[in-house]
């Protein structure tokens, strides 16, 4: 077990990530160990590595070991909504980095916001657009997220309240300087979140919200799993996207944009 007391030491201990198990909040790793599904050789404990800082500004910089509870306090929507999963205790323990690694609820919000991930691993430090990072996150240590603040945002999720499973569906929308961005998560268990360019283009072309939302099925490939069928997800997604976009319109109206 390694318990580094600085980010530099953590990066050194992580190396290329081979044969090392990272323990931050423990919400993912601990049950695997308890139930014999994971027998780690080397464990990197992040509690004292100073990776839990949060710097507020035009771009929010969130340490990989910051908790979801800490993130929810400072993050803009849709990220704050995504961080408000699933219950008080877990939010106080689960970390931003772990959530991004396992296909968690933060992903669609980060995609909609155009966030970037700073990570360490083979080949050294890297900063990737979040979409690229979540497509192949393994072997990387999440150091921090860089989240540009949007003009407005909304997060909607279909799930049983306070449940710990992956959601049936998540939708994140954000108004950024270059227009409205839409991303969807929960298309299958641990499937990475995806951006919805068809919806975004329709909105940019001036389509009404409901019409633009229908286009979401062109951007996603929902799967059958234990929570919902692909058929159901295709039916429910446009509704959820439309509601998120309507929420954004209400915010715009309330704040005198557009």
């Amino acid at each position: 077990m390694v318990v580094p007391s600085s980010a530099t030491a953590a990066i050194a201990a992580f190396g290329d990530g081979a044969g090392i198990t990272v323990l931050a909040g423990g919400t993912v790793v601990t049950p695997l160990v308890t139930h014999g599904a994971l027998w780690p050789h080397r464990v990197l404990v992040l509690r004292a590595a100073g990776l839990d800082g949060i710097e507020d500004g035009a771009t929010l910089v969130v340490g990989g070991a910051a908790t979801l509870a800490a993130l929810a306090e400072v993050a803009p929507e849709p990220l704050a909504g995504a961080a408000r999963i699933p219950d008080y205790e877990i939010r106080g323990q689960a970390t931003v980095g772990g959530n991004v690694m396992i296909g968690g609820d933060l992903q669609p919000a980060l995609v909609a916001l155009g966030a970037r991930v700073r990570s360490a691993g083979a080949g050294g430090l890297r900063v990737d657009p979040v979409e690229d990072f979540i497509a192949a996150p393994w072997g990387r240590l999440v150091l921090s997220l860089e989240v540009p603040r949007p003009q407005a945002g909304a997060f909607l999720q279909q799930r049983r309240r306070h449940s710990h499973t992956h959601p049936v569906l998540s939708v994140a929308v954000a108004r950024r300087a270059d227009g409205v961005h839409v991303a969807v998560g929960g298309l299958a268990e641990r499937a990475p979140a995806v951006a919805c360019p068809s919806v975004e283009r329709a909105l940019a072309a001036g389509a009404p919200v409901r019409e633009a939302a229908e286009r979401v099925v062109e951007d996603v490939q929902p799967q059958d799993d234990s929570l919902a069928s692909a058929w159901y997800r295709r039916r429910a997604l446009p509704v959820l996207v439309a509601r998120a976009l309507e929420r954004l319109e209400q915010l715009d109206a309330a704040e005198g944009r557009r």
Binding site: L23, T27, T30, P31, V45, R47, E89, I90, Q93
Partner: peptide, 13 residues
């Protein structure tokens, strides 16, 4: 002082 899951909290932390 904060409620936490003791089944998720390991000795190392």
């Amino acid at each position: 002082g904060e409620p936490r899951r003791s089944c998720l909290t390991v000795v190392a932390t």
